[in-house]
Design a protein around this nucleic acid. Structure first.
Lengths: 182, 182
DNA sequence: CACTGATCTGACCGATCGGTCAGGTGCTGA
DNA sequence: TCAGCACCTGACCGATCGGTCAGATCAGTG
């Protein structure tokens, strides 16, 4: 019964990723994760301070890349180049981390409330503004919002589409749909 | 304390709608709803068989319209006209019922599992196919999926945008983004 | 050998969940 | 006057949740 090697930390992460992807963060109990790993719930909480810490560790790489993208967007002085950087960077990120994004499974709103993810909301807002060409027009913001949320919500469903193909399809969609900056 | 008039049923529905919109279906307890109405949890369960019945009644009008749209799409023989009917019908539905759609707040996947909503999954699949121009190309399906999910996920956020304006913005987006049927 | 620290367990905790139940209250019609 | 009904309450239920805790196991070390 006792696991001889202490790679349990990684096993818990992998199991949690599978469960979160299947039933969402809220819909997954620590007992579920422990059951999939084959250890006790107490063992899970030995390796992680609490349930949220598991999610935080799973999302850390994606969040780091998102933050870097935010910096790159902020460095653009022209709305047109900011829009291009935002579109390409976001599609890259969505394709590369579609597995991680899938974990959130529509629990974005609740999860973004948690202190660990608070700054992501601000980054999302800046990403949205850049995609909208820094325009205040309602239609531009609506368009950008639909595309942003749609890509975030669906990219996890295309696990079997090759990176390249998914990237091209999403970029083409953004180019067609986004209002060109005047 | 005792409510003199038996309009409690409607009050519960309204309170549940507010709470679901604020914290999601799962994130709202019967106690929350009862607290907002000012009655006991048992009173809520006197008017509704269970928690799911509240959601079902809230969503019933939107579901009925969705079903009607499905029929209209199925009646189209040409992919091009099916795509047009699907796009216009879906935008209409999203704008008109954006309040109800907002209640689901990203819990689509879980909620669609429930028997009461099982057929909606099939309707969504047919709607997706129609928007994709009944094409099997991955890029067409990806585009349609992103737009469908994006609109469903975001339309509830535009409570303050006039119907007309939101409708025009979404329709313009779909026309730009959807692949024209050959 | 004894000791230590990392790993893990089962039993347990308080809180909350959806839901049940017996009974109280007040209106209505015979 | 009183039976009957719609409406509602507080107390309670079993289940599950995230999290705690004391202690068992075991490999390594002196």
């Amino acid at each position: 019964m006792a696991r001889p090697t202490p790679q349990t930390h990684g096993e818990i992460l992998a199991a949690a990723a599978r469960r979160f992807a299947a039933t969402g963060y809220r819909g997954t109990s620590l007992q579920d994760i422990a059951g999939e790993v084959g250890c006790s719930k107490a063992a899970v909480l030995y390796h992680f301070a609490n349930k949220e810490a598991i999610l935080t560790e799973l999302m850390a790489p994606a969040i780091e890349v998102l933050r870097a993208l935010d910096d790159r967007i902020a460095a653009q002085s022209e709305p047109a180049s900011a829009q291009r950087v935002a579109a390409e960077g976001f599609v890259d990120l969505a394709v590369r981390f579609r597995g991680e994004i899938a974990l959130l499974r529509g629990e974005f709103p609740e999860l973004l409330q948690q202190p660990d993810f608070a700054h992501i909301q601000q980054i999302s807002e800046r990403l949205l503004a850049a995609l909208a060409g820094r325009s205040e027009r309602a239609s531009a913001r609506i368009t950008a919002f639909v595309l942003l949320a749609g890509i975030a919500e669906t990219c996890g469903e295309f696990a079997d589409v090759p990176d390249e193909e998914l990237r091209d399809a999403l970029l083409a969609l953004l180019r067609r749909a986004l209002a060109p900056v005047h």
